[in-house]
């Protein structure tokens, strides 16, 4: 699998996802600077977490208008797998590759802690190594992770099975009480229509090695390697 990580000046979980890709695939991904206008020929494009351009207007808004994102969009439309984590998810919604928007957490505070996620389906390039309905534990670390979309869009993505992950209890129940940010329907990640683009707020890349306390994020990268090999 050939992967590229797109870095912005304020990316800060680029190192985490690069380390995770190396740990799981044994290969160092290419690194594409935000001012570059061309992407190498790759099977996976990762938009990592961080604060891209400081996130002063809206999280991800300026990054979504950067030249490299035109290229990312074109590749996504051509079927290349695109994974946007945290700030990467925010960018993907701002650029329109994914529906909805990520608003400030409902308690207006940054939240960093382990949460449980229900894997909605296991038939996508990102989740093949999970079971549908499986509960995994990964951390969140964000201020703007409150997923929202208008009722029509929400009905569409739900009916099309485009919700990737939902916040849930350790037993797999999607309850408002454990929702860390107020996301509508407990949505933690969504796919595009073709399911080659995934955006999610939690950080599977920070749970790939037992020393990190848990390795539930590892199968996501293994799934990608298996699918894209």
């Amino acid at each position: 699998m050939r992967a590229a990580v797109v870095t912005f000046p304020g990316s800060n979980r680029d190192v985490d996802v690069i380390d995770a890709l190396i740990a799981v695939s044994g290969q160092r991904p290419g690194i594409v600077w935000h001012r570059d206008v061309e992407l190498p020929d790759v099977d996976l494009i990762v938009l990592p977490g961080g604060f891209s351009y400081g996130d002063y207007l809206r999280s991800g808004a300026m990054a979504a208008r950067s030249p490299i994102l035109r290229e990312v969009s074109a590749r996504a439309e051509a079927g290349v797998a695109v994974l946007g984590i945290c700030n990467g998810f925010q960018i993907l919604t701002e650029v329109g590759l994914l529906p909805g928007v990520l608003m400030a957490n409902r308690n207006l505070k940054f939240v960093c802690r382990d949460i449980h996620l229900k894997v909605e389906r296991a038939d996508t390039p990102f989740t093949g190594r999970y079971e549908a309905g499986q509960v995994i534990r990964v951390p969140v670390a964000h201020h703007d992770g409150n997923y929202f979309s208008d009722a029509d869009t929400l009905a569409r993505i739900e009916s099309e099975g485009r919700v990737a992950f939902r916040y849930c209890t350790p037993e797999g129940h999607v309850e408002d009480e454990i929702n860390p940010n107020g996301s509508i329907n407990g949505i933690a990640g969504v796919y595009n229509e073709a399911r080659n683009v995934l955006g999610l707020m939690p950080h599977p890349e920070d749970h790939v090695d037992g020393a990190q306390g848990c390795s539930d994020g590892r199968p996501m990268f293994e799934s990608l390697i298996e699918h894209l090999a």
Partner: peptide
């Protein structure tokens, strides 16, 4: 339309 506002919300 293109940057300053996110017309979804």
């Amino acid at each position: 339309a293109r940057l300053l506002a996110n017309t979804v919300i």
